[in-house]
Design a protein around this nucleic acid. Structure first.
Length: 205
DNA sequence: TCTTCGATTGTCT
DNA sequence: GACAATCGAAGAA
């Protein structure tokens, strides 16, 4: 058992590829949040790519600021930011180190630490626990103090591990959502990747 | 069931 | 001072 956890963690080179590729391949991977001596998490089912300063929907489009500085950093780290006055968003910094690109994790299918997730999502029914970017951060107690955490470090309280294979035929692609004020062509870029909560995931639980 | 709208605060201009 | 990579309650059909 010892050592096996480390080998499951995605290596930094996984993130050092075009963000669209990283977003696609993050589907089915396992997001793990360590809370005290418990862990909670699940399989990623939805992700979006944000690609550099040219991408008008990307936070880096108007240059480097204090908020988005993390996106310019090392691939494989978390970029966590606050929006709408009440919501945290979780991103994985991707592409080359120093190039501002990140993948927004929009949804997961929880399989671990259900008691923790239930506690954090009172009064909410199962399918709605983590099916939105702000929902999953709340369910997993992710907030600004995790900004910049290394997702490749087995000692981190937030990491991404190997999960299950999602075949191409089960993956759907669309334009990104929640960026209504973004001009074309960025508005229509097919950089959102998602999958139905699949039968093979359910069997595995 | 579907659509509209209010909440609430950090960050940038 | 305006706005934001959203959620979920409330009201309409």
């Amino acid at each position: 058992m010892p050592g096996s956890i480390e080998s499951l963690i995605l290596p930094r080179n996984f993130y050092r590829r075009p963000v669209q590729t990283v977003a696609r391949e993050l589907l089915g991977k396992r997001l793990v949040r360590q809370i005290g001596n418990q862990s909670a998490g699940g399989y990623i089912t939805e992700a979006e790519a944000y690609d550099g300063e040219n991408d008008q929907a990307c936070h880096a489009h108007s240059g480097k600021t204090q908020r988005n500085a993390m996106m310019y950093g090392e691939a494989g780290r978390a970029y966590v930011y606050f929006t709408y006055g009440m919501h945290w968003m979780l991103n994985c910094v991707s592409a080359d180190d120093g190039y501002p690109a990140a993948v927004l994790i929009r949804a997961i299918y929880p399989v671990e630490g259900i008691n923790i997730i239930k506690k954090n999502r009172p009064g909410v029914r199962e399918p709605l626990w983590c099916n939105g970017p702000a929902k999953l951060t709340k369910a997993l107690e992710i907030s600004g103090d995790l900004n910049g955490i290394d997702l490749c470090d087995p000692g981190s309280s937030l990491r991404i591990e190997e999960g299950i294979e999602i075949p191409d035929k089960d993956i759907q692609i669309s334009a990104r959502v929640g960026i209504q004020s973004t001009p074309e062509p960025w508005l229509s870029m097919p950089w959102r990747f998602f999958t139905e909560v699949p039968e093979n995931l359910k069997k595995k639980v």
